[in-house]
Design a protein around this nucleic acid. Sequence first.
DNA 1: AACACCGCCTGAGCGC
DNA 2: TGCGCTCAGGCGGTGT
Length: 289
Amino acid sequence: MPELPEAERIRQTLRKRIVGLRVECVTVRRRDMVHGCTTRQAMLQCDCVENILRKGKQLAIVGSTGAAVRVQLGMTGRLFVCSGKDPAAHAKHAHVRWHLSAESNHRGVNTACSSAANGLILVFEDARRFGALHTHTSLCELRKRWRLLGPDALTIRTNALTANLSKTRRAIKTALLDQRVLAGVGNIYADESLFTARIAPRRRANSLSADELKRLAAAIRRTLRAAISAGGSSIRDYVDGQGTPGRYQRQHQVYNRGGRPCTCCGSLLSRALIDQRSTVWCDVCQHCR
DNA sequence: AACACCGCCTGAGCGC
DNA sequence: TGCGCTCAGGCGGTGT
């Protein structure tokens, strides 16, 4: 379940490895995983990787021509580089592969794939297929799409959070998961942030006091930063851009800990479904009013 | 307009 | 050991 910290780790690790490399050829094994135009150009073939961007949980691979492939990782999506010999490049659910090479003077003759076999491969893998790739013809188109998302959670300010939460009476837990309200928080970091901010998940979003909103914005930033530092949370599938799992799951205070003692007060953590999402919280530490 | 809810999809983990 | 069941949940679409 890659959320913002996992996406950011992927961005950081991929940036070091593949920016400046040329895409020799692209293999799309499942066309239904790609939305928008699926021409070679749209998929960045014969383009150079200019940058890796992130907004919320989403990533984008940007080519030097300005074309961009937006990546939604969904539940089980992975985006990583490996050598062509690595079995991971040929895994069952490796839906799209970009064959990369350092050569910048490539011209014409289609020796691309064979010569790239010794080079790096960028792999998009997604067992459950909740993820997707979306192609955009320009950076402008990508930005237009990203404007539909709320502010990025990593740098969320109290004012912006207040503005977006005051509009809704939904449970604060539910509102935090809405990517139009705040981009980047999923089930893990919603529970962790609410615990840190000592706010009960069923509180109506528009009922939070100024002090609570300030605590929440700070808790979100702090939680996400700590998770990034620890390499993200690997519950089951997540690995970063070089295939390394994260360690932040060891620091989870509430997520997946229902019925176990609160790390703060020792009372047993509650668990319930809120808006169809498993939610864990401490009845003692997290205030209902 | 705001919100609730559904369905997509696979594999881990469990009980028997 | 192996089968069948449940659960995990991001997100777009649809219904209320």
